[in-house]
Design a protein around this nucleic acid. Structure first.
Length: 658
DNA sequence: GCAAGGTC
C-alpha cells in the first residue's frame, strides 16, 4: 500500500489527523485500515503516511513468579494486559504499513513517554537507523511545520530515560508488591485474599492518608477565648470581628471584657470603601475542572475525567488530559464564540466580548507542552448521555466564555474600630458590576452591606460576651483534596492521579464516600511497609527518579548502569524480607492492647495511633491548665467534644486516661 | 496479579 513511503508515527488518532492536515496543506487523503484512520499525502514529491497509535502499544512483562524478579521483556499490551484488546487493531495497522516504509518519523508528543511510544513501534517493524524525531511543543500549524522542516536525529537519550522510567517503576512496583503480599499473608493470612500492591506513587499517597488520619483521630484541641462585641448603629446590630485574634488565657479575656463593660464604646479609627476588581477564571486544566466538579456536585475526580473523555470523543470539548491554563490564539476562540452567539447561547455577553478592542483570555500559569487548556469546540450538542455530562459541558462553556470577560467590580467596605486598645473590624461587599459573575455563576460573592462610619465617631456597644474557641482538628482527605496533595508533591501525572487514588480503594486500603479513611488492611500495610520497604513510602523516591532520568536525558549516565544500581538496592531490601519469611520472624513485636495493631511505642506499649493520642492528651492539658481548668473538667470535655479524635476516646474507654 | 504511564 505504501512501499517506499515515509511513515510518520503519531501518539493518537487526533494528533495524526492534525499533523497530516498541516503538512498536506489542508487535504490529506484518508485511508482507513481496519477502522483506524490513516492519512496519506505527498510533500516535495514524496509520499507520507501518518499512522496513529493509542498511547503505549508495548509494556513490560515477565513469565517468572515470586520475588525477586529481575527478568522482563517488552510485549504487545493487547496480549499481556486485561482490557487492552482494542490496541490490537492499532498493532495490526503498524505491522502492515511499517515494514514497507523507507523512513520513520516519530511524531509522538515531545516528552520521554512519546519517545518510547514511537521508538518501540519503529524498533518492532522498521529500522531504527532510519528513524527521525519531530520536536514540537504544540499541535499548531507553525510548530508542526517547523519541526517537520527541521527533523531531528534519533533522540536516544530521551528514549533511554523513558525506558528507564518504565523499568524502574516496574522493578520497584512488581517486586515490592509481591514481597508485601507474601509478608502480609504470613502475618495476617486470613485478611489477605487478593494480591496487594505498592508503588512509587500509590504508596506515598496511602501514607499521606494514614498520617493525616492518625493526626485527626489523636487530636485534642487547645482552648482559647474570644470576646464578642456587638455594636448598634442606625437601628441594626452588627457583630465585630477581632483583628488581634483570640486570647491565650481566660484571665486576659476576662480583664478585657471588664474594661469594655466599664465603658461600652467602639471608636471608629478608619473607614475605607473602594472598588475592587475580581478577574474572571482562567482557562481550566484537568484538575481545575475536577476540583470544581467535586465541590459543586460531589463527583470524584476519576469519574469527572471519564465524563470529560466522553465529551471529548463526542467532539464537544478539547483534549482533557492537560495541565495548561492557557488558550493560545491558534485554537481560534473567535469562531467558537461566534458559534455560541449564533446558537443564542449567552449572545448578549458574547456581543460585548467580540466588540472589545483586545480579545484576550485571562490565561493562568499552568503549562503543558502538548495541549492547551480545556475548551468547548463550538460544536453544538443535540443530546447528552446523562445529566452530569450536561452539567460538566455547561460548566466548560460558561468558564470558556467568562475568561474573555471584563473583571467584576465589587465595592468593599471595611470599618476599623478601637475597643479598649484592641482592634475590631466590620466588613461588607456589594457587587457593582457583575460581568463574568453572571455567566460563571458557580462563583458567588458573599454580599452584605454595612453602614458608612465616620472616622473618630464613638459607636455604642450593645452586647458583649466571652466564648471558648477550640482549635480546629486537621481535616481528613477527600478524593479532591488528596488529588491536590499529589499535584503539590508532583507525584503521578494529569492522567494517572485520579486513577491511582481509585486503586487505593480497589485494594481496600481505604474506604469512605466523602472523607477517606484507612481500613484495617490499609493500616497493616502501612506498618509492614514502614518496617520492611520504607524506601517506597517516601515521596522523595519520585524526586530521585526525576533526577536520575534527567541525567540520562542529558547523556550523563547510562540506562544500564541506573538499572543495575536499582536492582542492587532491591536485592538487599528483598532478601531481608525473604529471610524474615523463612524464619517467620518479621520483627513486628507485640500488639497494641486497644486495637491489636503492632506496637510502635515500646515505653507505652501502644500502636502508633494510640501512642500519638496518649502524648497529645497530656501535652494539651498543660495548655488548658494555664487557664485554670482542672483535670476533671478537661476529661469531661475529652469525653464529649466532637473535635476530640476517636483514638483519645479509645484511651479513656480502656482506662489509659483517667 | 503485582506499577505507572500513555490513550480508546
Amino acid at each position: 500500500m505504501c512501499r517506499g513511503c515515509v511513515a510518520i508515527i503519531a501518539e493518537k488518532p487526533r494528533s495524526a489527523y492534525k499533523i497530516a492536515l498541516y503538512l498536506s496543506g489542508g487535504k490529506p487523503e484518508k485511508i482507513s485500515v481496519d477502522g483506524i484512520p490513516v492519512w496519506r499525502f505527498v510533500y516535495g514529491g514524496k509520499t507520507y503516511v501518518v499512522v496513529p497509535s493509542a498511547g503505549h502499544l508495548f509494556s513490560i512483562s515477565t513469565r517468572r513468579r515470586g520475588f525477586p524478579v529481575f527478568e522482563y521483556m517488552w510485549l504487545p499490551r493487547h496480549l499481556v494486559e486485561k482490557g487492552k484488546g482494542y490496541l490490537r487493531k492499532y498493532y495490526d495497522v503498524f505491522s502492515r504499513i511499517l515494514p514497507r516504509a523507507s523512513m520513520y518519523i516519530n511524531a509522538c508528543d515531545y516528552d520521554i513517554e512519546g519517545s518510547v511510544i514511537g521508538y518501540m513501534i519503529i524498533k518492532k517493524w522498521g529500522d531504527v537507523a532510519r528513524m527521525r524525531r519531530m520536536k514540537f511543543s504544540a499541535l499548531t500549524r507553525s510548530d508542526i511545520l517547523r519541526s517537520f522542516r527541521n527533523l531531528a536525529p534519533a533522540d536516544y537519550d530521551m528514549i533511554n530515560a523513558g525506558l528507564a522510567r518504565h523499568e524502574l517503576d516496574w522493578l520497584w512496583g512488581i517486586n515490592v508488591s509481591r514481597a508485601l503480599t507474601q509478608v502480609m499473608r504470613s502475618l495476617f493470612g486470613e485478611l489477605v485474599r487478593k494480591a496487594l500492591s505498592a508503588g512509587r506513587v500509590q504508596t506515598p499517597t496511602l501514607f499521606e492518608v494514614v498520617n493525616s488520619y492518625i493526626a485527626r483521630e489523636s487530636f485534642v484541641p487547645r482552648v482559647f477565648f474570644g470576646v464578642d462585641i456587638y455594636v448598634r448603629y442606625g437601628g441594626s446590630e452588627y457583630r465585630l470581628e477581632s483583628v488581634d485574634g483570640v486570647f491565650d488565657l481566660r484571665d486576659s479575656a476576662v480583664r478585657h471584657l471588664q474594661s469594655v463593660r466599664s465603658d461600652p464604646v467602639a471608636v471608629v479609627v478608619d473607614y475605607v470603601s473602594r472598588h475592587v476588581h475580581i478577574d474572571p477564571p482562567n482557562p481550566p486544566n484537568l484538575s481545575d475542572v475536577q476540583h470544581d466538579i467535586y465541590r459543586l456536585y460531589g463527583v470524584s475526580p476519576s469519574h469527572t475525567l471519564k465524563i470529560l473523555e466522553d465529551l471529548y470523543l463526542d467532539s464537544l470539548i478539547s483534549y482533557p488530559r492537560t495541565n495548561s491554563q492557557k488558550y493560545p490564539p491558534s485554537i481560534d476562540y473567535i469562531s467558537i464564540l461566534e458559534a455560541f452567539r449564533s446558537a443564542g447561547v449567552f449572545s448578549s455577553y458574547i456581543d460585548k466580548i467580540l466588540g472589545k478592542g483586545d480579545l484576550r483570555p485571562n490565561n493562568g500559569g499552568g503549562e503543558d507542552p502538548a495541549h492547551p487548556a480545556i475548551y468547548p469546540t463550538g460544536e453544538l450538542p443535540r443530546s447528552f448521555r446523562s445529566k452530569l455530562h450536561k452539567a460538566i459541558y455547561e460548566y466548560i462553556v460558561r468558564r470558556f466564555i467568562s475568561t474573555f470577560m471584563d473583571p467584576a467590580i465589587v465595592s468593599r467596605s471595611v470599618a476599623l474600630f478601637d475597643v479598649k486598645g484592641r482592634r475590631y473590624r466590620l466588613s461588607g461587599s456589594v457587587v457593582v458590576e457583575g460581568s463574568w459573575l453572571n455567566v460563571f455563576s458557580y462563583y458567588r460573592v458573599d454580599e452584605r452591606s454595612i453602614p458608612v462610619f465616620v472616622k473618630g465617631s464613638r459607636v455604642p456597644i450593645s452586647r458583649t460576651g466571652i466564648r471558648r474557641v477550640y482549635e480546629k482538628p486537621p481535616a481528613l482527605y477527600n478524593k479532591s483534596s488528596l488529588l491536590k496533595w499529589m499535584e503539590k508533591m508532583n507525584i503521578g501525572t494529569e492522567s494517572t492521579r485520579a486513577e491511582i487514588i481509585d486503586i487505593l480503594f480497589k485494594r481496600k486500603y481505604v474506604e469512605g464516600s466523602k472523607s477517606i479513611i484507612p481500613t484495617r488492611l490499609g493500616l497493616l500495610v502501612y506498618h509492614v511497609v514502614s518496617r520492611r520497604f520504607s524506601e517506597i513510602s517516601r515521596v522523595e523516591l519520585t524526586r530521585e527518579f526525576e533526577y536520575i532520568l534527567d541525567s540520562i536525558r542529558k547523556g550523563l549516565r547510562s540506562k544500564d548502569e541506573v538499572i543495575r544500581r536499582a536492582v542492587d538496592t532491591l536485592r538487599s531490601v528483598l532478601s531481608r524480607a525473604n529471610d524474615a519469611l523463612e524464619t517467620d520472624d518479621h520483627g513486628m513485636g507485640s500488639s497494641c492492647p486497644i486495637c491489636g495493631l503492632p506496637v510502635a511505642d515500646r515505653d507505652l506499649g501502644l500502636c502508633c495511633c494510640h501512642s500519638a493520642a496518649y502524648r497529645r492528651v497530656y501535652d494539651v492539658f498543660r495548655h488548658w491548665e494555664r487557664s485554670g481548668y482542672s483535670w476533671g473538667e478537661y476529661l469531661d470535655f475529652l469525653a464529649k467534644s466532637r473535635y476530640v479524635g476517636r483514638f483519645v476516646k479509645d484511651l479513656i474507654a480502656a482506662g489509659y486516661v483517667k
